[in-house]
Nucleic acid binder design. Structure first.
Lengths: 326, 326
DNA sequence: CTGAAAGCGCTAACAA
DNA sequence: TTGTTAGCGCTTTCAG
């Protein structure tokens, strides 16, 4: 089943079929219809490699995540794959196993075989990334780099939402546990926390253990704390609990990301939900623009980088501040 | 950078370079060495699509998982990618989003572009899978199908390990919460539970809610329960706890899979650890055999299907049975 | 053991 | 608006 078969069946030349399928040149509607009919009469589907070799698109995009076993990233990848699928593009999801060098290697390996790349929270140095990407279509997720397209979740709103919730509950001494220095999401959230006048704690590792560590570093008088992410929040709650302080009666805790874990622990975690699947979808949309886009792609993003809204999910780990009561 | 460049540099023909690189024909060691030197002097790397188009391998394999956001599957995928990478093959990880039809569609879409496919716990009907795979190299993970290669974790040992642990602790009335009918892992575990004479409960959905439901269906006098998986176990513990029964003082609970969650909840879950990454690696190994293997691949697995060992991770959710005491 | 030549299926000038 | 003609980079007969 090749282009030639279709051409024969439709009574036109192979180039006409090619053009009809790719919209590469103006064709008479009649011809297009005839070709289209032949195509699905024959159940034809183009040969990806042939198309690629001949200088066309590969019809595939790559999505690189730092840690596939982290549902946070897996969900973004899912959103991306979903959207790409709708566009008829194949998606190659690749796992960098939390290694910057593996990440770079993956990119290098994938780039020749796809039309574009989506990079989720890449961990490699900016300069390296820029070099690896060259002028290829690419979109960064949650890690803006000048001159390249990106899509991010609203980190400032995340911290603000958590703070406002706590304030509304009557809390005044609110601590914020910082995430690992160097990660964009950390810096973005940390900066906002500082701006908001929260008591900064950490940075700590973005893990359960990190949360435990943070628990013992809380300023005296703290009645509420916002953690850099859910895992830290859970570790924090655990440490707090085993040191005799009750959550939420004695201290309220808010997480960030709303991973599944947050709804499974007791008390369930109040947390900020990130639009994960949407991040993936938007990234693919932006990538599609670049791929089909005109001009020297890669260097000049066509539109403003979208900042996606986040929302607060209130659960059992937060309660009104009531000194003396309960 | 093409084959021709290498050929020129090495002073041989392109076909010789091709043969040297693929070991397709007997070549004098001297020639091979010369070619090899030229290759890495030039930093040459073959053009995947060209190679594919010309009838060679694509140098890529696909790994299809039913739910990428489930760390259980993501970890298997990681193992697979890791090993494939070592073999110099590119890995395409794809997410079926828990839809059997999407799964089938993915397979159909990927199969023409890869040398082989690894299917993790596929959810589509056997007949459909067989049809979709045709005679292409493929390996099934945790879902044996006659006539196709597969690699599985030892489900029987999993239940046995849990039972023995509980027995050793003095428990005699042990319940087993069954997973969803139709899944291979469920049936394998359920059958073993029956064989072992445990009190069967369920089946319930493999979720937190399923565990909660199971809690109220436990036979009177039950002092220990083994759940189909960790999520169910956690839901079970939660329901038990809120109905006033303490874990592990009143009833011991054992999960299965040892996902991260198991170590994060309180009490932490005693559970059976599955060799996830190893499953992925072995699957790729078996796939590699088929791909390079002789004979009509796909129909006659070359070796016996491996059954990988599992281990028990003891944590806080289990304790000795001591009627009357503590 | 090695070279020459013929495509694989498709796209992209270049004509018409 | 459409057809003709070259290849893309590689593998593979077929000679030698």
């Amino acid at each position: 089943m090749t282009l030639a078969d279709v051409a024969r069946r439709a009574g036109v030349s192979t180039s006409t079929v090619s053009r009809a399928l790719n919209g590469t040149a103006p064709l008479s509607p009649a011809t297009v219809a005839r070709v289209r009919r032949a195509v699905d009469a024959l159940g034809y589907s183009p040969h990806r490699s042939a198309r690629h070799l001949a200088g066309g698109r590969t019809g595939a995009i790559a999505v690189v995540v730092p840690d596939l076993t982290n549902p946070f990233f897996a969900t973004i990848a899912r959103g991306a794959q979903h959207r790409a699928h709708e566009n008829g593009e194949l998606t190659v999801i690749a796992d960098a196993e939390d290694s910057p060098s593996a990440e770079l290697e993956l990119i290098a390996r994938l780039v020749p075989d796809v039309d574009g790349v989506v990079l989720c929270s890449p961990t490699a140095p900016t300069a390296r990334l820029v070099a690896a990407l060259g002028s290829r279509p690419a979109v960064l997720v949650n890690r803006p780099i000048r001159g390249r397209a990106s899509v991010v979740a609203d980190q400032r709103a995340a911290v603000r939402l958590a703070r406002d919730h706590l304030r509304g509950l009557g809390h005044e001494r609110i601590a914020y546990v910082r995430g690992p220095a160097g990660k964009w999401t950390s810096s973005a959230r940390d900066a906002q926390a500082g701006r908001l006048g929260l008591d900064l704690v950490g940075p700590v590792a973005p893990t359960f253990g990190g949360g435990a560590r943070a628990a013992s570093a809380l300023p005296r008088g703290t009645t509420a704390v916002i953690a850099h992410n859910d895992l830290v929040a859970v570790g924090l709650v655990d440490a707090l609990t085993s040191s005799g302080r009750r959550v939420p009666e004695d201290v309220s805790v808010v997480g960030c990301d709303d991973v599944e874990l947050a709804s499974l622990v007791r008390p369930a975690l109040t947390t900020v939900r990130m639009p994960l699947e949407q991040l993936g979808r938007r990234a693919v949309d932006r990538l599609a623009e670049q791929i089909s886009g005109s001009g020297p792609v890669g260097s000049a993003p066509t539109a403003a980088d979208p900042v996606l809204a986040v929302t607060l999910t209130v659960r059992g780990s937060t309660a009104p501040y009531a000194a003396g009561r309960t």
